[in-house]
């Protein structure tokens, strides 16, 4: 039991003490720490009987040396700040729209959707979703990471409103749906009007990703809703 505990702590068993005047605290190996402090301690004890004031001066000096404070988070490498949908019709130019949460993890809500997604009745599109971190320069493409960890991710598409169907087309390494690519189709004769497409990036992490799933049952990484519209027939 001890060995289990020690092996898991093996790499952690280090002492950190700030050293006066140094910008960053540095890690002192255990044995040299004892040497450094033992001398100071011995001197302190010897001095004790002769000059309590010296001890006070020593300790006051140490009190003020605590190292510098810093705020330097490594940066949320997984922050996704923009979700872009690009729909390419069988003929014609691609359309795209994005929703951006400029402050990332901050409290401000995501922006309104930029770009309109018009799906004429009877049309079919191939679609792709793109996840980006736009708080850094150059812009970080998170889609590539999701693709690299396809076994742990799935994008769910849920349409609210009649007449539009969205199905994901790509698969991960084990043949389970991934959802970075999809097809979107508006049924011929469907009523014009607004629809909503909810895009949800599900992160399976340690759970085994099921082959079949209707919705995300674990952790949600992205949850945004895009407005779609079926335009009036001109």
């Amino acid at each position: 039991m001890m060995s289990v505990a020690m092996s898991s702590f093996g790499s952690e068993f280090r002492f950190e003490f700030p050293v006066c005047g140094v910008r960053e605290p540095h890690t002192i190996p255990f044995h040299s720490l004892i040497t450094i402090h033992q001398d100071q301690i011995m001197q302190s004890i010897v001095r004790l009987s002769r000059a309590p004031l010296a001890l006070t001066a020593l300790t006051l000096a140490l009190v003020s040396c605590k190292g510098d404070s810093i705020t330097d988070p490594a940066g949320e490498s997984e922050v996704i700040t923009r979700v872009t949908l690009t729909l390419t019709p069988t003929t014609g130019a691609a359309i795209s729209a994005f929703i951006e949460d400029a402050d990332g993890n901050g409290p401000n809500p995501p922006s309104a959707q930029v770009g309109t997604l018009n799906l004429p009745a009877g049309s079919t599109f191939t679609g792709a979703v793109r996840f980006e971190n736009r708080t850094v320069t150059p812009v970080e493409d998170i889609t590539a990471e999701v693709l690299a960890e396809a076994n742990e991710h799935r994008v769910f598409y849920t349409v609210t409103g009649a007449g539009i169907t969205v199905n994901s087309t790509d698969l991960d390494g084990a043949g389970r749906p991934l959802g970075l690519r999809f097809t979107a189709a508006a049924v011929a004769g469907t009523q014009p009007g607004a629809r909503t497409l909810r895009v949800l990036l599900c992160h399976y992490d340690k759970q085994v990703k099921p082959a079949v799933a209707a919705s995300c049952t674990v952790d949600t990484d992205i949850d945004v809703s895009f407005a779609l519209s079926v335009p009036n027939i001109v």
């Binding site: 605590k66 404070s69 705020t71 988070p73």
Partner: peptide
């Protein structure tokens, strides 16, 4: 008397560095 310093280093922000 007490002096204290904090370093915030992780991926995510929760509290700032402070003295």
């Amino acid at each position: 008397a007490m002096v204290q310093g904090n370093q915030t280093l992780g991926k995510a922000f929760l509290i700032p560095g402070f003295d």
